[in-house]
Design a protein around this nucleic acid. Structure first.
Lengths: 335, 335
DNA sequence: CTGAAAGCGCTTACAG
DNA sequence: CTGAAAGCGCTTACAG
């Protein structure tokens, strides 16, 4: 037997309307009545039914976070998990509850689910597929993308200045004197990996030390295992090339490659300097710790949610989000 | 303007009741009518309003996951994040949507929020505090604990056989010939750290090689930083003690301690063998990779949710969950 | 096989 | 300052 506003009204000897008014604080109520009702609510531990409220207000104060990943991990992903944490944090302060869901097969199933639940808005993380976008748009639910695989016209998209980050790495490594730089690049279909590589290559070309495509390995996934495997299978090529440094377009790949090299007794950074990208927690913990470019995931999550909130509240003149500024974090793997 | 059942009914020339029946599949409907309605639903992309449904059925098909952590990370936590992933997975197959929330200050705020949202049930992860238990119990909402800090009478609690895991480590290390074992133990107020240490000590005492309390360091948090710091501050003691191995009651502490030792040019495992506990993803990635005891987090999440589902559906004769069986994972840090 | 009515727990004008 | 009524979008007996 759930406690309802009706029961409170009965006990307080007033109408439901009055109880509703004291709870919401809107409209007049005599002090005497207000106190009596508040007292009862406290005493009986009454909690208004948010479902009923949503029904009438047409606002659930719930949002959905869709993380598109083909494989595990989802929430525990070292990069996307961080963004999720920031979203959770900000959501609490803005009074939203958040549904976390995933869709590995890129079906519309979870998006569909969120539509039925009548979420006020959606945050789409990672892969951004046109069909999902179209589907959601069709329902008229506001949404924000975070670190999607491509930019899409008219879609609010929170991203890092990845091209600039790639440039920073090139500048840093060349300033250290490196000229023979090996590169392992994550999936080029993904915006961030693509731009990181681009920024890096452009800088190198600009200073007259272009990176030959033979020095660039294309990874099909951006995982630790892939980094390890690519380094293993190209080890002879790497040794023969006289490379003094390695840049991978994310930390996981860099760490995997590093582990293989450490197992070959390569001294890092003395023989090979390594730079990654993202600054996941593990980067600082690895031995040697990894020099990398920090993506401000906290700001990503915070910005995504406050932007979504504006969209939901239909604020006017909402500005497109500014790209986040990356920061080079120098650690043991290069110095 | 949301599309409603009323609109579908109007267009199909039938009553709302009939539309409701074809959607639910309960009750009779003529084939002709059913087809017409289904056609319309498909055409207009009608999605039933789960909020309205919840209102009448008194079931939201939403559950809440409360992760109690004092500090970040929450969802991205290497251990709890894994459990969360498993929960998300199972939830999808059981048709629940899940709210993920946290409460760093141990207030009742998020529990309260979940009560207002009228979740069908709750999963409490990590710290288990009596006041939260009491509060939720008071509302009559079913819940399941996962890896809580203590066992509480009558509370369904999914845990690992931590004492057995501690025993396995002791057996393994002594079988390798180690007698001088250094131990860093996580917060003893937490059930898992306490039992892991206990199982370990008991085995050692049992074979006549009791661990003196001077060989056991108490960590106040179970973090990487704490492991590193404790090893640093007790380095002289460690060296003087002639220890050939280290056991930490979780991987993070073990990894932190390992990093410090590697920085001191200690060769692992030749000079010091290291064993952790949990088998978080980083354990396998570290260099050298860490020997550890795997906690079946996937099973934890899956079991938690199916148990909660039984509780929600008020199944009779629900058995208490069996403790999960740990498994020793041997890696480079000991061989 | 189908429709009218009541009701889930609230809020929101509208009278008084 | 307060209460009665209508309504949010569904489902569920109950008639017919």
């Amino acid at each position: 037997m759930e406690l309802t506003i009706k029961e409170i009204a009965l006990r307080a000897g007033v109408s439901k309307s009055t109880v509703s008014r004291v709870i919401s604080g809107k409209g007049y109520t005599s002090l005497e009545v207000r106190d009596r009702v508040l007292q009862l609510i406290e005493e009986l531990q009454y909690r208004p039914n948010a479902v009923a409220r949503a029904m009438v207000s047409q606002r659930t104060h719930n949002i959905g976070v869709l993380i598109y990943r083909q494989h595990h991990p989802i929430a525990s992903h070292p990069f996307y998990g961080k963004i999720l944490d920031a979203i959770l944090m900000t959501a609490a302060s803005l009074n939203y509850s958040v549904f976390v869901t995933t869709d590995h097969d890129m079906s519309l199933r979870s998006a569909d689910f969120m539509m039925e639940k009548r979420v006020d808005g959606l945050i789409l993380i990672s892969r951004l597929q046109q069909n999902v976008i179209d589907y959601i748009t069709n329902f008229g639910v506001p949404y924000v993308m975070v670190n999607g695989s491509t930019d899409v016209d008219g879609v609010m998209h929170i991203v890092n200045q990845d091209e600039e980050g790639g440039r920073m790495v090139a500048e840093y490594l060349t300033d250290l004197g490196h000229r023979q730089i090996f590169v392992i690049a994550g999936p080029q279909t993904h915006r961030s990996h693509n731009l990181r590589l681009k920024g890096f290559k452009n800088y190198m070309a600009g200073i007259g030390v272009p990176i030959p495509s033979s020095s660039i390995l294309q990874a099909s996934t951006s995982t630790f295992g892939e980094g390890y495997e690519l380094m293993r299978s190209h080890w002879e090529q790497f040794r023969a090339g006289g490379f003094t440094s390695l840049f991978a377009t994310n930390d996981m790949i860099a760490l995997g490659a590093m582990k293989f090299m450490l197992e070959q007794s390569v001294r890092i950074p003395e023989q090979v300097a390594v730079v990654g990208f993202d600054d996941i927690d593990f980067a600082a913990m690895f031995s040697p710790s990894l020099t990398t470019v920090r993506v401000n995931t906290e700001e990503m999550g915070t910005q995504a949610l406050s932007l979504l909130d504006k969209l939901i509240r239909q604020e006017v003149n909402i500005e497109n989000p500014k790209q986040l500024v990356p920061r080079l974090i120098v650690r043991q793997s290069t110095q």
